[in-house]
């Protein structure tokens, strides 16, 4: 059985009246890509800050690599790499100088550091930009530099706090592929995001947070199994009578059917051939319809069903 890398037990963090973390517990095993998913303000960053001992908490315990995490636990910090949402590099230093500086915060041996810097540059594909200053780099390249600065010292635990916010799709894919590659190389990853697609794509296990509490935890399949919905069928159709909607609602495995005037949405729970049965009903009543598509549940559905609200705002 894999070792526990991070163990958070009953963590409570208050800001006056506001409870930022409410008896939050977590176990992250070695080799996992662990996703912390939740809307803005759910407590993801507070969890990370407490985990890194940058923030004092009111109650609970945090262990990293089996040792208690404290602000002066430098032996533990040595094994952790942090990549934040905002790019944190010196404008006055070149690409390689920046990586060397941040690597130097962990590794003092020059020769070892030189090798680590080279590896990091190669890993993020910045070989042609070594002498460039950050202001000369594009947004995507800057993100790569940000990642290189966080991983150059080859940490065993890498924490990424919303690293893809405001990143273009191509760079986002590069970042996600890079994270998976780091995981393949043996690093345990903690990935916080409010983008469910990313979390679904790369995380082996996920904890969903809301209002400082963990509301669900498991693999993406486990999480999806926690909810009633297994399939949502959407049919573009006009003028559907109440009788037809009732008939569809009464089909086996269908637990809800709604029509908004243009689209019929049918929610199914388990079962097979749900789509065929629904279309049979429409044909029987000689109803003309347009585009038909079926959707599997997403983590947003999980969040929606558990909390009664969407995981992220529409503009996100």
């Amino acid at each position: 059985m894999a070792n526990t890398v991070v163990k958070i037990n009953n963590l409570v963090k208050r800001y006056g009246e506001l409870i930022a973390l409410d008896h939050f517990s977590l176990d992250i095993k070695e080799g996992e890509v662990f996703g912390l998913l939740g809307p803005n303000g759910s407590g993801k960053t507070t969890t990370i800050n407490c985990l890194l001992s940058l923030l004092a908490f009111d109650k609970g315990d945090i262990e990293v690599f089996g040792k208690e995490m404290t602000p002066t636990a430098y032996d533990i910090k040595k094994e952790i790499g942090v990549i934040m949402q905002n790019v944190a590099v010196y404008d006055e230093l070149t690409v390689s100088e920046n990586i060397d500086y941040f690597c130097g915060l962990y590794i003092t041996d020059k020769e070892e550091r030189r090798k680590c810097v080279e590896d990091a540059i190669k890993f993020v594909g910045l070989e042609d930009f070594r002498k460039f200053y950050p202001k000369k780099l594009s947004g995507g390249l800057l993100r790569r530099l940000n990642i290189a600065c966080g991983i150059a010292h080859k940490p065993k635990l890498i924490i990424l706090d919303e690293p893809t916010v405001a990143v273009d799709p191509q760079s986002r894919n590069n970042i996600l592929e890079g994270i998976q590659e780091l995981n393949k190389q043996g690093a345990t990853i903690i990935y916080t995001s409010h983008y469910m697609e990313e979390v679904e794509q790369i995380c082996t296990r996920i904890a969903i947070m809301d209002k400082g509490r963990k509301i669900a935890e498991g693999t993406k399949d486990e999480l999806k199994r926690m909810i009633r919905n297994t399939e949502t069928v959407n049919i573009e159709i006009l003028n559907v009578s109440e009788d037809i909607i009732r008939e569809i609602s009464n089909l086996p495995h269908v637990y809800q059917a709604d029509h908004d005037g243009e689209k019929l949405t049918v929610y199914c729970s388990g079962g097979k051939h749900n789509l065929i049965r629904i279309l049979d009903v429409l044909q029987k009543h000689d109803m003309a319809f347009g585009r038909v598509y079926s959707e599997l549940p997403t983590l947003n559905d999980v969040f929606l069903e558990i909390t009664g609200k969407a995981l992220r705002d529409k503009e996100d």
């Binding site: 890194l52 032996d75 966080g150």
Partner: peptide
């Protein structure tokens, strides 16, 4: 530049004695 919030955050996460 040395006190830049993001850079300090990263430095504080490191194993360097504050």
């Amino acid at each position: 530049a040395m006190n830049n919030k993001e850079i300090r955050y990263r430095t504080n996460c490191s194993s360097l004695d504050s």
